[in-house]
Design a protein around this nucleic acid. Structure first.
Length: 860
RNA sequence: GCCGGGAUGGCGGAAUUGGUAGACGCAGCGGACUCAAAAUCCGCCGCCGCAAGGUGUGGGGGUUCGAGUCCCCCUCCCGGCACCA
């Protein structure tokens, strides 16, 4: 063993050994219990960021721990390789997206290997490889045959200058991020997958996901948003048709004072044709991003359409308005407005002086006015004629029955969830395998002719999709007849690729099936680890896709992920400058110098390059768009992989968000160095003896060793709290370091203690522990060495420290026998000198004894 | 706006079932070693107070012998909101 801890030398050696022995290769073996540990695969953005390091270290710790438990562990890694950033890079650097992506993958693979993650690299996959996406195309044709996909128009953000569809992220304050042009809403034909057909199952199966965080399940339930209500038809007074609305509150029907429709609603469009002022209003509404977050934060605006509908109960006219906050993509794109009992309707009614009517009163008989605020809670009906006095359910039933009888309404279950829009008007994605014949009729591509390869040699201008300008791609023939046809130029949403990769890892080389029999052994994923930001979209799509695969007869069951560990965000301050046009340019923290006050708070920040100030923005998730990522490579180069892994796991528990500061990395390095030195000093004295331990101090040390095994095992396997596991080992190392190694007994305990530290830390810092393990006299591979076992006799203790409180305030600590009866605890507590001082002249009213913990004496 | 989460010393965090608030680490301060520095080692370290003691977990109220933890109200911050991944 070297005297000096030198990660730069020992880490590559350990990695070379792992590679040479193939310890991380996963092979199906029905005689062994499997464990499938998966981290969300990265987008190959160019370099690893701290979020990746955190995510993959958590996964690696769990995978390595499970291996030491004797499980057959599958721990794969791949690349979510299609997506928007590659197109942006192509425009900026004039590099084809494929080339940019593959070179990023190569660099990032090297970084992952440098960090010593225990992946089975033989299973690596990239979603931009035709071997992968061909199955996605095949699956799409299956879905087409099963009527689970369809075409329909949808509204997109259109950049009129760049002639391209913009992602919501690319719309900043209503303008295209590159062109600066005002964005227009535009309706174009799109592809949808019927996720709503699985809404009930996706909702119901959440109850069975015991290994998922409650917060994630709640968010998914709310996202699916199942509700029971009434779909009601309001006849237009001019006889031109009906306005359909959906409501979950038919009990408030008599409180309706106006109707509100979305700007894209046919009724609004028809009105705009008659009235230029309305047309102008609709045009203004069309210059807003399609993003719900943007729409819901808009100042509420509306306009009367100068038409009315007949109230289905009273027959009285109700005015129809168009409102900018009503979403066409929700329900019917129209709502009945009850300002007395809905906050948003109330606000709008106040703004435009529309009547507010109270039809619900509190069930407890109290008086409430709806003039200043809506009464949203359910209660009893009032001012509702024959329905007065009914509660919500009775009123619902009575009104539903009456309207159903007149064919003006029907009960409906509705979901907030909308069908999944999977087509993108982009180049760098998986081509949708569809053709159009000369008449424009749609023909799915034949399975035998797949894959439809995405051409990778591409000229890029940034204006419109390059696929649309590639005759070699577009001009095709129909399967069978060979008649001329035009190829679909839309590609899939990248969530399509990330919805099934976990299943493909079971059989990445399968040429005969999307997912083959090997998946029966490995699936489901035992633990899936990734960012909390994926709580709804990715995780819901993946659950849905999994059910689609199951129903297509593939080798998977109902749910893909048994346990879910949602990692908190790695956050960092943002720095930016804003142009006159409002365009923000973000600067990386490494290129900025921050001045702080004496309390460590940032006052000003300057760009190092020009010395001029930059704005200190909010602390946000490290991301490419905010350019606030901290490059882990610098730390790896300086301290080695083990220190980076240790620090990342020590800084915060996995589920908590972590505001990055690199100041305490030094401490992690110091700890590894002192553990190394302790081991070095120990092994330098020669092979350790093995004698009985009788000294009380050394017995206490042995107890500490075994208490640490208990603590770390619980933290790693049940709690996933690696920070406290590390703290416990640090305490043990501190105790070992203070032990005089002058006797055989002490050396026996030191050997045991160092072995335990090595084993407990092996999943977290696998490189240095491997060298230490060998130095401690072992020739087996640490990566698959058995996890330490607790010696129950070492844990035994005969005395325990108990806190004594007087009126809930701590006054003393006393030592009691472990099984001390309450009377003894009480006696000894009262007898304590310090306690007695506080009891003087007081009457003891009550004494609470919590065995083994505390005695609280209540006086007064 | 809606849905979900969070707030504890100068800083990251600990307190697992309502039972010692601040484990472990960073930074800081004092000392030892050294010609010196680095490294290392020893000690101190929430706030107020000489001390005894008081006080303290975003703010306000409540339940309890006892609340960081449970309940009600509020503030601020973070994530998601369907084309960032």
């Amino acid at each position: 063993m070297q005297e000096r801890y030198s990660p730069v030398e020992l880490e590559p050696q350990a990695q070379a050994r792992w590679a040479a022995t193939g310890v991380f290769a996963a092979t199906e073996d029905p005689t062994r219990e499997k464990f499938y540990c998966l981290c969300m695969f990265p987008y190959p953005s160019g370099r690893l960021h701290m979020g990746h390091v955190r995510n993959y270290t958590i996964g690696d710790v769990i995978a390595r721990y499970q291996r030491m438990q004797g499980k057959n562990v599958l721990h794969p890694m791949g690349w979510d390789a299609f997506g928007l950033p590659a197109e942006n890079a192509a425009i900026e650097n004039n590099v084809p997206p494929a080339q940019w992506t593959r070179s990023n993958i190569n660099y990032m693979r090297g970084q992952l290997q440098r960090l010593g993650f225990s992946y089975d690299w033989a299973r690596e996959l990239a979603t931009c490889d035709a071997d992968y996406y061909r199955w996605e195309q095949w699956f799409f044709t299956q879905l087409y045959d099963r009527d689970l996909v369809y075409r329909k128009t949808a509204v997109v953000n259109w950049d009129p200058v760049d002639q391209t569809v913009l992602a919501n992220e690319q719309v900043i304050d209503g303008r295209g991020w590159r062109s600066g042009a005002l964005v227009e809403r535009r309706e174009i034909p799109q592809w949808f997958v019927r996720i709503t057909a699985y809404a009930d199952e996706l909702l119901a199966d959440l109850d069975g996901l015991e290994g998922w965080p409650e917060a994630v399940k709640t968010m998914q339930r709310n996202w699916i948003g199942r509700s029971e209500g009434l779909q009601i038809k309001f006849a237009l007074s001019d006889g031109s048709g009906e306005l359909e609305v959906y409501t979950t509150r038919p009990d408030t029907l008599l409180g309706v004072t106006y109707m509100a429709v979305a700007p894209e609603h046919p009724v609004a469009r028809a009105a705009a044709e008659r009235d230029p002022a309305i047309a102008e209003f609709l045009a203004a509404c069309a210059q807003v991003s399609t993003s719900e977050a943007v729409v819901e934060k808009l100042e509420k605006r509306g306009m009367s359409l100068n038409l009315t509908v007949k109230h289905p109960l009273t027959g009285l006219p109700v005015p129809v308005w168009v409102a900018n906050f009503v979403l066409m993509s929700y329900g019917t794109g129209a709502v009945m407005s009850v300002p007395g009992h809905d906050e948003r309707d109330h606000e709008f009614a106040k703004l435009y002086g529309l009547p507010i009517k109270q039809v619900i009163r509190p069930a407890d008989g109290s008086e409430v006015s709806v003039a200043d605020a809506a009464l949203v809670e359910k209660g009893l009906l009032c001012h509702s004629g024959e329905y007065d006095g009914l509660d919500f359910q009775r009123a619902f039933d009575a009104i539903a029955a009456r309207l159903a009888g007149e064919a003006r309404a029907e009960r409906r279950v509705q979901y907030r969830l909308r069908d999944w829009l999977v087509s993108r008007q982009r180049y760098w994605g998986c081509p949708i395998p569809v053709l159009y014949d000369e008449a424009g009729t749609l023909v799915p591509e034949d399975a035998a002719r797949l894959p439809v390869r995405l051409p990778e040699e591409v000229e890029w201008s940034g204006v419109s999709s390059p696929l649309a300008r590639m005759p070699d791609f577009i001009n095709a023939t129909l399967p069978g007849s060979g008649a001329p046809a035009r190829r679909e130029t839309d590609t899939f949403d990248t969530f399509f690729e990330s919805s099934w990769y976990y299943a493909r890892f079971c059989c990445p080389d399968s040429e005969h099936a999307m997912v083959d029999e090997r998946a029966r052994y490995w699936m489901p994923v035992d633990i899936y680890i990734g960012g909390i930001e994926h709580a709804v979209l990715h995780l819901l799509y993946a659950r849905f896709f999994h059910k689609l695969m199951r129903d297509a007869g593939l080798a998977v069951a109902d749910e893909p992920f048994t346990r879910l560990l949602t990692q908190g965000m790695v956050c960092k301050e943002t720095y930016f400058r804003e142009s006159a046009a409002g365009k923000k340019t973000y600067y990386n923290p490494e290129s900025v110098d921050v001045e702080t006050d004496d309390k460590g708070r940032a006052i000003t920040a300057r760009l190092i390059a020009d010395g001029q100030p930059v704005v200190i923005g909010a602390v946000e998730k490290m991301s490419k768009s905010k350019n606030n990522g901290v490059d882990p490579q610098t730390l790896i180069d300086r301290y080695g992989a083990d220190t980076v892994r240790l620090y990342t796991m020590f800084a915060a528990p996995p589920e908590q968000s972590l505001e990055w500061s690199d100041s305490s990395v030094e401490g992690a390095y110091r700890f590894l160095r002192s553990l190394w030195r302790l081991t070095y000093e120990h092994v330098s004295r020669g092979a350790a003896p093995r004698v009985d331990v009788t000294s009380p101090a050394l017995k206490t040390l042995r107890r500490k060793i075994h208490e640490t095994i208990v603590k770390v095992t619980d933290d790693v396997s049940r709690r996933y709290k690696f920070n406290t596991a590390i703290a416990a080992v640090m305490e043990l190392v501190n105790a070992l370091g203070k032990t005089d190694a002058g006797s055989d007994e002490a050396r026996t305990v030191l050997q045991e203690g160092l072995e335990v530290c090595t084993l407990l830390l092996a999943p977290i810092v696998p490189h240095c522990t491997e060298a230490m393990w060998a130095a401690l006299g072992h020739d087996n591979a640490l990566a698959v060495a058995p996890w330490p076992v607790v010696d129950p006799t070492a844990l035994a203790r005969d005395e325990v420290e108990v806190v004594v409180q007087v009126n809930g305030k701590k006054r003393a600590n006393i030592l009691l026998p472990v099984d001390a009866p309450e009377t003894l605890a009480r006696e000894r507590a009262m007898a304590d000198e310090q306690v007695a001082r506080f009891l003087e002249g007081q009457t003891v009213r009550k004494v609470i004894v919590v065995p083994g913990r505390l005695v609280n004496i209540v006086v007064g």
